[in-house]
């Protein structure tokens, strides 16, 4: 490595001058591409917000107006008048918060077991855990539905929340990767001080892993907030609907109220956008960790 670095120092200035022009053109092309792609990726958001501010006649005009002629907030009011939108919001919050709590508690405990406690059969069960990551939940959907049906839990939030307390392979894996990076010495000294395994987990590992716990909380928040198939199967009563089911109410087979529907979509999306900007680094690092260290 050292030899390479020295060699580089000698050759670089000569090369740089001749390459400067080409480099500049290359930069321009890269920025042009990035800006064009950015416009393409932003456009649907722009259209979403724009339509939510257009009155119905303008939303369905052809050719469509790029910007609303006048900002009309009426659609946002109508969202709450056409359907019990506030109720959907509360339902989504209950399911999501319950699911996140269950996920964080169960996944941290299980992940610590896999990361640090050498018990017989650990490698076997870890392989099983990885294998279940590849199993689509739809394969087991019908028997699981029948279990909840037998328990009388259909049309309640329980089938959506309770499974979260039994861990999630993806997040267990992610947390295990984090826990393995914590130096063992900390645990060993705590152990010598008479701390039990759960004490070590709770007093040492968890405080050191707050960022990764936040990452899991954010990612699972997104998962529960966006879930559609679960509520679709388990919730029959309109008063129990979550937002994902609720915004479909604006779309009849024939009549669609575009403005209010887009306004509702903005309101569904808003908490996620806020969470993303508040916890951006946790999102990015969490997703990156699973892929790279996988």
């Amino acid at each position: 490595m050292v030899e390479l670095a020295e060699a580089r120092v000698e050759t670089k200035p000569v090369k740089m001058r001749s390459m400067k022009r080409g480099k500049r053109i290359e930069r321009i092309v890269i920025y042009a591409l990035l800006i064009i792609l950015s416009i393409v990726f932003i456009f649907p958001f722009f259209w979403l917000v724009g339509t939510s501010l257009k009155p119905e006649s303008e939303a369905m005009a052809f050719p469509p107006s790029l910007l609303p002629k006048k900002w009309d907030w009426a659609n946002y009011k109508e969202v709450f008048e056409i359907v019990p939108f506030a109720k959907y919001y509360i339902n989504s919050l209950i399911v999501t918060v319950g699911g996140v709590i269950g996920t964080v508690i169960s996944c941290t405990i299980v992940a610590y077991g896999f990361a640090r406690i050498k018990g017989k059969g650990r490698d076997f069960w870890f392989a099983v855990l990885l294998a279940t990551m590849m199993l689509p939940p739809q394969v087991t959907m019908i028997p699981v539905y029948m279990i909840f049906s037998k328990l009388g839990w259909i049309n309640t939030f329980l089938p959506l929340i309770v499974p979260s307390f039994f861990g999630n392979a993806y997040y267990i894996f992610l947390l295990r990767q984090f826990f393995k990076t914590i130096p063992r010495e900390l645990e060993e000294s705590a152990y010598l001080d008479g701390c039990g395994t759960f004490g070590i987990f709770w007093r040492i590992i968890i405080p050191l892993s707050i960022p990764s716990v936040i990452t899991v909380a954010l990612l699972s928040f997104m998962g529960y907030w966006n879930d559609f198939l679960g509520p679709l199967i388990y919730l029959n009563d309109e008063s129990k609907y979550t937002l994902a089911l609720g915004i479909l109410q604006f779309k009849g087979a024939l009549i669609v109220s575009w403005g209010p529907m887009m306004a509702a979509s903005v309101l569904v999306l808003l908490p996620l956008i806020i969470l993303f900007f508040v916890g951006q680094k946790y999102f990015i690092s969490g997703i990156a960790t699973t892929g790279v260290k996988g």
Binding site: S106, G113, T132, V144, A169
Partner: peptide, 21 residues
């Protein structure tokens, strides 16, 4: 201790994955 820690997932695996399969 290991099995106590992974118990939530292990139970979930049998109740929601292996059993239903």
């Amino acid at each position: 201790v290991f099995y106590m820690f992974i118990l939530p997932w292990l139970l979930g695996f049998f109740i929601f994955t292996a059993g239903p399969m």
